[in-house]
Lab assay of single mutants.
Amino acid sequence: VGDQVLEIVPSNEEQIKNLLQLEAQEHLQLDFWKSPTTPGETAHVRVPFVNVQAVKVFLESQGIAYSIMIED
């Protein structure tokens, strides 16, 4: 199991704000291929294997929908 690319769908401005804060966490080494800008629009982010669980827990705790787009 390696890195994953998640497709994330924020449903409101609050969730977009939370994702932008997540993007700013440099220690997570997230690679946003497509940043969140509009509710209902997908964002794509590559998550290093060591941080996959932490990111998924965060998304679930914020009620942000996501799916695994690419499993490496």
Rank of each mutant, 00 (worst) to 15 (best):
V1D: 11
V1L: 12
G2T: 08
G2W: 10
G2A: 10
D3M: 12
Q4E: 09
Q4H: 09
Q4T: 14
V5W: 13
V9N: 07
V9D: 03
V9H: 10
P10S: 03
P10M: 04
S11L: 13
N12P: 01
N12Q: 02
E13H: 12
E13V: 10
Q15N: 02
I16R: 04
I16Y: 05
I16F: 09
I16M: 09
K17H: 10
K17L: 14
K17E: 11
K17V: 11
K17F: 10
N18D: 12
N18A: 15
L19H: 00
L19C: 03
L20W: 14
L20C: 05
L20P: 01
L20G: 05
Q21G: 10
Q21D: 14
L22G: 03
L22R: 02
L22E: 01
L22M: 09
L22Y: 06
E23P: 05
E23W: 12
E23L: 13
A24L: 12
Q25I: 11
E26N: 14
E26K: 12
E26C: 08
E26A: 15
E26I: 12
H27W: 15
H27A: 08
H27T: 07
Q29M: 15
D31H: 13
F32H: 02
F32I: 04
F32W: 15
W33K: 08
W33A: 07
W33C: 07
K34L: 06
K34M: 05
S35F: 14
S35G: 13
S35V: 14
P36C: 03
P36G: 03
T37S: 12
T37W: 05
T38M: 12
T38I: 12
P39A: 10
P39F: 04
P39L: 04
P39M: 06
G40Y: 09
E41F: 06
T42C: 05
A43Y: 14
A43H: 07
A43S: 10
H44M: 13
H44F: 14
H44Q: 14
V45C: 05
V45I: 13
V45S: 01
R46M: 07
R46N: 05
R46C: 06
R46Y: 10
V47S: 01
P48K: 05
V50N: 11
V50I: 12
N51T: 06
V52G: 03
Q53A: 11
A54I: 13
V55E: 00
V55C: 02
V55S: 00
K56L: 11
K56Q: 06
V57P: 01
F58G: 01
E60C: 04
E60Q: 08
S61P: 00
S61Q: 15
G63I: 02
I64L: 04
A65E: 15
A65I: 11
A65W: 08
Y66K: 00
Y66C: 01
S67H: 08
I68E: 06
I68R: 02
I68W: 05
I68N: 04
M69H: 05
M69P: 04
M69C: 06
I70D: 12
I70S: 10
I70G: 13
E71S: 13
E71W: 13
D72R: 05
